[in-house]
Design a protein around this nucleic acid. Sequence first.
RNA 1: GCCUACGUAGCUCAGGAGGUAGAGCAACGCCUUGGUAAGGCGUAGGUCGGCGGUUCAAAUCCGCCCGUAGGCUCCA
Length: 608
Amino acid sequence: MMKSNELEKDQLYKLRHSAAHVMAQAVQELYPEAKLGIGPPIDTGFYYDFDLGQGEDGKPRTFTPEDLEAIEKRMRQIIGGKHTFNYREVSADEARELFKDQPYKLELIDGLVQGGIDEYGNETDETPVISTYRHDAFEDLCRGPHVEATNKITGNAFKLMNVAGAYWRGDENNPMLQRIYGTAWRNKKELKQHLKMLEEAKKRDHRKLGKELDIFVFDEEIGPGLPLWLPRGGIIIEELEKLAKEMEQKRGYERVRSPHLSKEDLFLRSGHLPYYAESMYPPMEMEGVRYYIKPMNCPFHHKIFGARPRSYRDLPLRLGEYGTCYRYEKSGELFGLMRVRSMQMNDAHIYCSEAQFEQEFMAVIDLYFDYFRIFDIDKYMMRFSAHHKNGLGKKYVDNERLWLQTEGLVRRAMDNGGVSYVEVPDEAAFYGPKIDVQVWSAIGREFTLATNQVDFAQPESFELAFINSDGQEERPLCIHRAPLSTHERMVGFLLEHYAGKFPVWLSPDQARIIPITEAHNEYTLQLERRLKEAGIRTKADLGTDRMNAKIRQAQLMQIPYMLVIGDREVENNTVSLRRRDNTRQNDLPVEEFIATVQDRIATRSGEL
RNA sequence: GCCUACGUAGCUCAGGAGGUAGAGCAACGCCUUGGUAAGGCGUAGGUCGGCGGUUCAAAUCCGCCCGUAGGCUCCA
């Protein structure tokens, strides 16, 4: 028996799917030339893809926002018609006749007939049944389910949101269709709630907060995807790096450094040029030699491993570096700090024997959990990204045996460690499988934050070896890992995660001292000096604004501690503490305040 | 890269169906000496993203380019 929330989800699903059909009918009436793609329900609504053919200028015709209004209006009329949804099964020939003017539908029918391909182009084991749903004069190839009749869709609880181009079957070599996204809910109140939620999410968008809190900027003249870190952002990065160094030092990592570019030969050997060239900045040539800027640090670390003979006694060798990498992401793929072209990675490579693999791999997973605790992260998903055999020799190193073997190693390690994960095919790196930590941005987009990857390919390309206890040469495995992601993505994520309210240890400004009148300036400056000496990032606000205005500014910048200084404080050598959560503590001895804050910082506490 | 939309002062945004622009905040100056989220007055600040075209005249119309947003593709 279904749980009630699943049942509701199912009803919503049917409602949204039905709304997609109604939209397709409306579009077809308004644009008789339109060819239909697919139109499934999604998380908050539905979409449908259309091919509108060519306009008079010979270019593909597209929708404009005004078109959406007309479509929405017609949809309401159809909904009001209370047409029932009728299911029927048809033979392949009937289906082909029915959709003879719909090339995309014919392609779908072929997929069904041949079996093994569903409407998204993915493989399926299901027995093909060709079915349609009809309401009013509109019949669509569809396996349902649907609501009983169009009036189950609430006329004022859906909204067409936007138009987007989308490639047929998600392949950029296919024609681009016009996709209309809609959102649909049970009632008007739910729709309003959803729209309000979208507004709220915008407020914690890291791009907005980054601007408001002076964390980073982009400059047109420098280039897209190349962020500038402002002093306040720089502090956050310094703190993250400090954390990483502490954690890695305790776990036996050694720090190395490597150049930002290298001769072409290195990336040919590593496999980056064969598999990854599209994402690399083009080469520069000097004295007849081609150089590339590095998209990853691994080849350099492999060279460090190989710089001298290695014994099994050296293993595991853990080489860490906050390396700066550059990747040419396509212009449309850039997204604030979450997807950039210059990035500094919390990178390390662990070289170990196969016997050591499980322990080393799980030590990295444990490190993840340590970080999650520090940052109070509980909404994430571990994704086991495996290869797909169709990509062998294209996006993946062509050695199926080693793929299956290393994937088995990862699966066993995770299962033995009792760590839950979702296995997803065709998401691996070109050199091996990985465990990615998936998180979601404020507006709901999914990102890989951290990653833990096995590499069976590059140790071989670099002919890496160590002498085992039997005196024989043995090939090490390499683990690539970046638990703190890149500085860019991590700060972007943390901005949204904390909604700008960083814990004290990460806050760019930890304390702001606010004198009530000029008469208190001297004590204020004295206090500023004391706090700074105590290692607390402090600024005295001696500006000409009134105290209230200064407090407001400090609040808006999410500064954890505001110290208001007046006659009482000067006289008693105390502070009047206002925390950013608006809790107060008056007549607090300075030493006591300092001790508390120092403790919060030292323990990286989340408490104010 | 592709589809759609947007781009006016440091920031948030008005305005403009062709006649070289306006507010609030921020900045600066003066007044105000004020106990926990904006005290008052004033000054300065923009060839309206860039380059071309149409026009007597372009911020406004057209084209191209750059950047940004929401998607598609791709991805740490």
